[in-house]
């Protein structure tokens, strides 16, 4: 390989005639919706709906017991955390404009760090708030009947144990493997870029 021009000539022989035409591409891009952002948007809407329902319940039912009000407040707080985290994450992607490969890799590394923080801290706080919230909220509805108390609290305890001891650890393990692999790859690329600066 002593002649770069020979390589350029070979490079240009790549067939590109099966790419969609400009009219077809225009149809494709107009149809496209950003799935990643749509999922975040859906979570925000669901959380907002949950808050609205809680607020309506507070004013319509007019609970007298402190446990119910505390339960409602804690559930609202959990939903607010969900909204805040997803809005912040969505904003980062929307704000990301024209950037070099170096800046983009830094952005991706930060995104993955945020994701790890979310799984290790935010998700635990959110789940703890909603679990305690549910525990407190249900008390006013069942405390008059021993049977109802036993049944409802058993269901809640089973659900919370399932969430904390099975569902979360399983998802966390799966995500952690994926995240670690991605972060390792990003670190390698980042090293390749920064090596250029030496």
């Amino acid at each position: 390989m002593d002649n770069l021009n020979d390589l350029k000539a070979i490079w240009l022989t790549a067939k590109t005639d099966d790419l969609p035409g400009s009219k077809e591409m225009l149809r494709i891009v107009k149809r496209f919706r950003n799935e990643r952002l749509r999922k975040k948007l859906l979570i925000i809407f669901v959380a907002l709906f949950a808050i609205a329902m809680m607020v309506v319940t507070i004013f319509v039912v007019r609970s007298t017991m402190i446990t119910t009000i505390l339960g409602e407040v804690l559930t609202i707080m959990a939903a607010l955390i969900l909204i805040f985290t997803n809005t912040k994450s969505m904003k980062r992607f929307i704000d990301l404009k024209d950037c070099s490969n170096k800046e983009f890799i830094e952005f991706l590394e930060q995104t993955r760090r945020n994701q790890v923080y979310y799984y290790k801290k935010t998700q635990i706080v959110g789940m703890a708030l909603s679990s305690v919230g549910l525990f407190l909220y249900i008390y006013e509805q069942v405390y008059r009947s021993l049977l109802a108390t036993v049944i409802f609290y058993s269901i809640i305890i089973i659900w919370i144990l399932f969430l904390w001891l099975y569902l979360r650890p399983r998802n966390f393990k799966k995500q952690a493997i994926k995240l670690n692999a991605t972060m390792e790859k990003l670190r390698k690329i980042s090293d390749q870029i920064n090596e250029h600066e030496k």
């Binding site: 950037c99 070099s100 490969n101 170096k102 800046e103 870029i193 250029h196 600066e197």
Partner: peptide, 8 residues
Amino acid sequence: IIGLSAGN
């Protein structure tokens, strides 16, 4: 495009 100096 890469985000490095021309020399690099």
